[in-house]
Structures are given as C-alpha cells and as structure tokens.
Amino acid sequence: MNVLDYISHFFGDGALWHGYDGIPTRLGEHVVYSLEALVLAAVIGLPVGLVTGHFGRGGNTLALIATGGRALPTFGLLVLVVTWFGFGTGPAMVPLVVLAVPPILVTTYEAVRSVDPSPVDAARGMGIHESRILFRVELPVALPLILSGLRSAAIQIVSTATIAAYTGLGGLGRYIIDGLSQKNYEKVVGGATLVAGMALVTLLFFWAVSRFTVSPGVRRSE
C-alpha cells in the first residue's frame, strides 16, 4: 500500500463523511479554532506592532519577544498549559495564540518602521494628524509585509492546531493522533492530507486578500 492508496481509501470511506468524527465536523472545528486563534493573535499583535513601528521605539523588546516565541517548544508549552489549566478548548488556544503573536507583532513593527520616511515627513508637513499618517500613509505601504506576517502566523496556527488535538481540541489532528494509536495509517495520511490542504487554502486566502487590499502603486505590477 502506498500513500496514494491510503488517501483514496480514507476519502472513499463513506462513514467518514458524517458524525462527530466525520470530515466536515473535524474540518469545521479546525477552521473555527484556527480563525479564533488568528483573530486573537492579530488583536494583540497588530496594534502593538503598528504603534511601536510608527514611533520607531521598542524594537529591542520586540526582537526579544520574537526570539523567545520562536524558541518556545510548541509541544512543551502545550503540556505545560494543560498541566496548569487542565484539558479543554481554552487551554489549547493558549499555545496557538502565543506562537502566532510574535510573527504578527514583529513583521508589523518592521513593516511600518521600514516605510520610506519622506512621504511621512511630507504628510506631517501638510498638517495631517499623526493617527491618520499611520493609517492612511504608512499602513497602505506596509500592508504587503503585514499580510505576510499574518499569513505565516495563520499557517503556523493551522499546523499547531493539529498537535493541540491532544488536549481535546478536536479538529483534524484527531485523525492523526487516533490513527497513530490505532495503527490506522489511512487515517493518519488522510488527516495529514487535510491539514496540508488547509494550509494551501490559507495561502490562497491571503493571496486573494492582498490582491484586493494592496494598492497597485505599492504592488508595482502594472
């Protein structure tokens, strides 16, 4: 049996399309948890990144947070949180968010800080308010980089959510974990395929968002 056989068996199994362990349910869980985690991380990371980037301060602290974030072992963090707070959706969200904040925060900071200073100077000289400079002058130019930060965070969340299935989060990770313990490799490969597919959809989603939100003048593609 090769991988493709596993995949066709997995998706060909009619029973897997219904019920609490069916693909739609598990996929739905995965999407919802991932989205929740992404939104939460963005709500923390974006404003801090924008403001620190605009004023050009706090870069060292942010770099520290970023390195710290990257160095944290996902699984270790998960175990730690679960030992402290027990199993459940809440604790399982913690590592997802903790891991997603640094890429969002740091790229947003870098994106805003690296915006060409002369339009900002010109805008200030024209009498544009500081907050408006941030949102109308810096943000549109920093957007591609900010979106790329969100995208890496999203991909990271999608894959980490798989591991979080250990703590009862549900989602596509269940197939992999259960498959492994049951030595059901169809299930393992099928679950992995779904996760990969979801990562791909995430990439596509961000590509579409940037198509619609980034000005052609910034994209420089016409």
Partner: peptide
C-alpha cells in the same frame, strides 16, 4: 496643523504617497 495647511511643503525626493494615484496625491490637502 492649521499653520501647516497654510504652507505648501516640498521635499527633496518629493515624498509622494506610493499607494495613491498622481491625481489623488495632488488632491491630498
């Protein structure tokens, strides 16, 4: 900002807003 809006300001490398068209750049103030 009232003072600044009463004075045009031109700098060395123009400092145009990349994401806006030429017309909208000029229409800013």
């Amino acid at each position: 900002n009232t003072l600044r809006r009463s004075m045009g300001y031109v700098i060395q490398n123009a400092g145009l807003f990349q994401h806006r068209t030429i017309l909208d750049n000029i229409a800013t103030v």
